[in-house]
Amino acid sequence: MQDDVERVLLDETAIRGRLAEIGRQITEDYADEPPILVGVLKGAVMVMSDLARSIDLPVEMDWMAVSSYGAGTRSSGVVRILKDLGTDIADRHVLIVEDIIDSGLTLSWLLANLRSRGPRSVEVAALLRKPEAARIEIDVKYIGFDIPNEFVIGYGLDYAETYRNLPYVGVLKRSVYED
């Protein structure tokens, strides 16, 4: 797998350190009323695991799976729910945990969907954000890193369902996904 990586963008130490910082901030911000963490499958699995362990509160976790990519490298803008929440979020603080915010289209749809369910609040924590790729401006409360508009893999991020298990975030060589 390493042969397909052009370069490492963020190593495991940097990622875990930043998630620990975000976890401490979430602990302070939600000290009186812990949020339910909603992880977005499949990419947010690694982020959710490390972030949840760094929050010193009794948080609940649930998962949603939404798709707007297919096997490609760009968002299609058409969102489908593949797995919905199993928890009622009415009158609860909800913290969406994302691996990456790219165009913002999927997250914008997800925010509207969750807000329609009557939560007390809905905020977003994302490991990565690509400001140059944004097509919709999204208010993100907790951001790990702003990164360039390159195709990244690792730490939960994939290309065609592979590379998720890399312990770092790397830039995928163009030769892997371009004909």
Rank of each mutant, 00 (worst) to 15 (best):
A31T: 12
V40T: 04
E6S: 08
V8L: 02
D29L: 07
L82M: 13
R80F: 08
M64G: 07
V97A: 02
M64K: 11
D4E: 11
G23N: 01
V66I: 15
L9T: 00
I96G: 00
L9P: 03
V97I: 13
A31M: 12
D11I: 03
H93W: 05
V122K: 01
E6G: 05
R24W: 07
R117T: 09
I89L: 07
R53G: 10
W109H: 13
A31Q: 12
A71I: 06
D102N: 06
A20R: 06
A112F: 06
S68R: 13
K83V: 13
V66D: 01
L19E: 02
Y69T: 04
E33V: 11
S121M: 11
S116A: 14
S121Y: 10
Y30E: 02
R115C: 09
W63L: 15
D102P: 01
D4V: 07
T73R: 06
A71Y: 10
I136F: 09
H93M: 07
R80Y: 11
R16T: 10
G118S: 05
S75F: 12
L19K: 02
R80E: 13
D11R: 00
L110M: 12
G118Q: 08
H93S: 08
V79C: 12
R117I: 10
D29I: 09
N113Y: 14
D50V: 08
S67Q: 10
A20E: 05
L127D: 01
V8Q: 01
M48P: 06
L57G: 01
G70C: 06
L114I: 11
L85K: 06
L85W: 03
V79R: 09
G23H: 02
D62C: 09
D91P: 06
A126H: 05
W109Y: 15
A112M: 04
S76G: 15
A90G: 10
Y69S: 10
M1V: 08
L9M: 13
A65N: 14
L57T: 05
I22V: 14
L95E: 02
S54D: 03
A90V: 12
S67N: 14
V124L: 11
E33K: 12
